[in-house]
């Protein structure tokens, strides 16, 4: 089924935790006014959207509690813990680990040691744009380290999820970030953004190529008063992404914010994003082969001879 809008991400404050690739550079508190929050919740209810609140580190005023709990929700930064450091131990089922590539490589064994104690770990690489082809071997090795631990655990019938390796094991089609298609973000100013990163860019004056007239600083795609208005929305969809629609790195985030930042077009991934996703895909293939030998019935992941689909685009 074609993705459709299912999630509303509500940034409760300018300093809400970053939980994906983009860092949050905003340091000054700017709490979403409670009336705006109510309007956002109403929008979510009427559009039948699942609410995901993104919390700041500080405690919200008590009067927000009743409003926040007026609808089913997930609390990022509370229910889902977000950390920028590899913790010594984990005390929650779901954790988002935001980490630089070199740190992941350096701390691969520390991360692997956490896997038996989580239900799901999402690893977000925060510096994909810096990835160099010279790092391919090191990243592959780190993935193999993590893959070996996961394989052992699965053979013991323990099934922790690690987004960059286990998601691909079961996926049969693309399952990406889907910003603007499957989810939309509302910021404390009551405006919609494709994802929090676009709001950060607007607030900090970073040109990220989204806007119609490039001299206009706005990155918003509508507001709570007038609704959503996403120009060239079709370019967010998979069938309008020539490289991605033929790709089988199904777990890839396909981060459109990174696409804009690195290739200047929403629908075109960078070399770095493609290579990293394919190294993960191939590592998942290795895990899949071992688990199949152990009796798991998993969809086939084919052997391929490229790590960047751009290199074989003529064959498509």
């Amino acid at each position: 089924m074609k993705p459709y809008l299912q999630y509303l991400v509500i940034l409760l404050d300018d300093t809400s935790v970053a939980y994906c690739h983009a860092d949050n550079p905003l340091k000054e508190r700017n709490l979403m006014p409670i009336e705006t929050l109510k309007k956002a919740i109403l929008f979510g209810m009427k559009q039948n959207l699942m609410i995901q609140y993104v919390y700041p580190e500080y405690e919200l005023p008590a009067e927000y509690d009743e409003t926040i709990e007026s609808i089913d929700n997930l609390k990022i930064g509370r229910d889902v813990k977000v950390t920028n450091e590899v913790p010594a131990a984990v005390d929650c089922d779901n954790i988002v680990l935001r980490i630089k590539i070199k740190d992941l490589i350096a701390k691969q064994y520390d991360i692997a040691a956490l896997l038996p104690n989580v239900k799901r770990m999402n690893i977000c690489l925060t510096d994909i744009e810096t990835f160099k082809d010279e790092q391919i071997a090191e990243y592959k090795k780190a993935l193999n380290t993590l893959g070996a631990v996961l394989t052992s655990l699965y053979k013991e019938q323990k099934h922790p999820q690690l987004n960059i390796l286990t998601d691909r094991l079961t996926l049969k089609e693309m399952h990406n970030c889907e910003a603007g298609i499957g989810n939309i973000t509302v910021a404390p100013n009551g405006k919609f953004y494709l994802c929090p990163a676009f709001y950060y860019d607007e607030k900090t004056g970073v040109s990220n190529k989204m806007n119609y007239k490039t001299k206009d600083a706005s990155r918003s795609v509508g507001d709570l008063e007038n609704g959503l208005c996403i120009p060239n929305k079709q370019l967010l969809e998979l069938d309008h992404a020539p490289l991605c629609r033929n790709c089988d790195a199904y777990h890839c985030n396909r981060c459109i914010w990174l696409n804009q930042k690195l290739t200047w077009d929403n629908n075109t991934p960078s070399h770095q994003q493609c290579v990293i996703a394919h190294l993960e895909r191939n590592a998942a293939r290795d895990i899949s082969a071992k688990l199949s030998e152990a009796g798991y019935n998993l969809p086939e992941i084919k052997e391929i001879n490229y790590i960047d689909p751009f290199d074989v685009k003529e064959e498509w």
């Binding site: 190529k209 989204m210 806007n211 119609y212 120009p231 060239n232 370019l235 309008h240 077009d265 929403n266």
Partner: peptide, 9 residues
Amino acid sequence: AAKTHTVFE
């Protein structure tokens, strides 16, 4: 002439 920063319109 595109509505966004793209060569795909």
